[in-house]
Simulated scan of single mutants.
Amino acid sequence: MNTFTLFKHSLFQFSDLYQAKKMPFWKVILYVIFLSIILTLPITKQVFTILQDIKDDGQKIAAKLPEFKVTDGKLQTQNQAEGFIYQTNSIIFTFDPEGKRSLNDVSADSVGNAISLGFLKDEFIVSLPDSGAADSLLGTNQFEVPYSKGTLDGLNSQDLKQALDEANIPFWIKLVIFIFTLYPTLINLIVNLLLITIGANLYSKLRLYKLRFFDCLKIVTYCATLPVIISSFLHFINLTFDDSFLIVFVSLLIFFLAIRKENRHQSPLV
């Protein structure tokens, strides 16, 4: 029996899944990766949606920018343009050529998961949401780029608007995001499959089925197909849905149905 046949049985014919014990272990590993990809799809879709929202919001903000240019370590505007604060769903933007605001002021504007950006008189500021992720990965969630360093020297409103209009997410960035999302999903799925296998192996011993631990693991992997698909679908509706219990519980139920045709040991005589 091949992988595709077992996949079909995992959706419609649970009683034949016991034959998964005959599958080579490397194919089972590939199938676990396949299931992880299914679980990763709604998460990566959400990430790409957020990135697109940031791009769209950036274009809205750029349309409101007055003429400016970074030169001689200062943010210089035409016609004494006034500063403003503009908020979208993903960005809280500060434009302050008069020097009225500081890094702490811009960071304090942050609400929820919004990113705070600021073109201040002497520096450009990025403040990420205070979720702990930035601190653990980057050491801080606040970044300052002083104009005096020359990194942004010559930047002007027209260049910024053109860059935002032409901005697209490169394929390699999408691939990196997908891989980074896939890794923790794969680890979590492996942990859940091992938990299911422990319960399944205990059940098979109590029922005197002739199944080893790795036999149970192979069968359980295919039994998890339908729960994984259901969980992925529910994640598209609600990204915060905790799928671990659903996958473990439903996979065990399917395992109980899958091994009914399996041979048993003879009961010891009393």
Rank of each mutant, 00 (worst) to 15 (best):
I115Q: 06
S90N: 13
T151N: 09
D122R: 00
V126W: 00
N141M: 06
A81Q: 07
P170A: 13
L138A: 05
Y86H: 13
T151C: 02
V145E: 11
G118R: 02
F84N: 10
F171P: 02
L152C: 08
K149Y: 03
Q142L: 10
K174C: 07
G112V: 02
P146Y: 07
I92K: 07
E98K: 11
N168M: 12
F84D: 14
G83D: 08
D122I: 05
L75C: 09
Q78P: 03
Q87I: 11
N79K: 10
T71L: 07
E98T: 06
A167K: 10
V70Y: 00
K74H: 15
I169W: 11
G83I: 05
I92L: 06
T185H: 03
Q142H: 03
G132R: 05
F84C: 11
L155D: 06
K74I: 15
L120R: 06
L186P: 01
L164Y: 14
Q78Y: 00
F180I: 08
S131F: 01
K121V: 05
K74L: 15
G83C: 02
V106L: 09
Q80A: 13
T140C: 10
V126G: 04
N156V: 08
K161E: 15
I85R: 00
T151W: 02
G132Y: 01
T181E: 02
N104A: 14
V106A: 09
Q76C: 02
T185Y: 02
N113L: 08
L152A: 10
L103P: 03
S90R: 10
F124N: 05
F171A: 14
I115G: 11
E123W: 04
G118E: 07
Y86I: 11
D159K: 06
D122H: 12
I173H: 03
Q76W: 00
V70Q: 01
F93C: 14
I177C: 00
L117M: 12
K100S: 09
T181H: 00
G139Y: 10
A167P: 04
G99D: 12
G83K: 04
L164C: 13
I85C: 05
P129V: 07
E123I: 03
Q162K: 09
F84Q: 08
S148N: 08
A114M: 01
G132N: 05
L186W: 00
S131K: 00
G99Q: 04
A81K: 05
